[in-house]
Design a protein around this nucleic acid. Sequence first.
DNA 1: CCCATATTGAAAACTACTATCAAAAACAAC
DNA 2: GTTGTTTTTGATAGTAGTTTTCAATATGGG
Lengths: 141, 141
Amino acid sequence: MERWEEALAQAGYRVTVPRRVVAAVLSEADTPCSAQVVFELGKIRYAGLGLVTVYRTLALYESLGLISRVHVHDGCHGYLATTPGHRHALICTRCGRSVEFLGQGDLDLLIARLEKRTGYRVQEHLLQLFGLCSGCRGTDE
Amino acid sequence: MERWEEALAQAGYRVTVPRRVVAAVLSEADTPCSAQVVFELGKIRYAGLGLVTVYRTLALYESLGLISRVHVHDGCHGYLATTPGHRHALICTRCGRSVEFLGQGDLDLLIARLEKRTGYRVQEHLLQLFGLCSGCRGTDE
DNA sequence: CCCATATTGAAAACTACTATCAAAAACAAC
DNA sequence: GTTGTTTTTGATAGTAGTTTTCAATATGGG
């Protein structure tokens, strides 16, 4: 929770109530949240919160690398807090609960091979896995 | 180009002018196209084309596995023709040109390890790489 | 505590996408 | 070919998600 305020201050942004609220919501959620959901959860903590501010704050946090915008199958974007380092998401398609993980080495190999073959120079990547968490698998299998 | 018509017929769908136009646009594009772009490029070939039909056709082709909806950084969705088999995209961040590739084995290892650790059962994944193609690297490096 | 400035929230604007429905086209049977 | 049934289409209108604008407000340095 301190992490967010520090990052803001360090980058010269003010630490405000709405920004603290959005940070709180995101750092507690273990599911990618749409802007709308962040807005609703945020209003519980601070009734005056505006949707516009949520969008702005999400964009700000994303630019600071505090959260990442992930692709969600139906809606479009979900926002997820990122712990430092490059991480990927494993998302349960039933309950939406997600786990982050580092997937460095494995991709490095793939990327190196690909760069050689295509002539591209890879800078970034988006890796998201979808499946069922142990809870949601329930009786199947 | 035949591939599209066959797939439609085989699944019991009619082969129509708009569907042929969308297929033509997508099979020629080597860049993920938004619905809007498909619409505009499509109208060049067939002025009567409607945007609604483009959306419907894209959804149809996606359900047939002929294209995949990829995550594009700014807009949201881009559509890209998929050659049979499971493929991923490597997209140039400057010119948008993209290359498809198979990334099976590498991920399998990662996925297996992850399943053991998290208890999740992985069903699907989304992998997109972003970088610069040889043309766009130009003078840098 | 005060002030300059960053930040906010409401309303309106804009874009992406979806539902509705009568008209048009595709395919199959003749 | 022609006909008829059914799918498909495109225009309009509607909904959802996101951005712009701008006066009011809150922040942090002095």
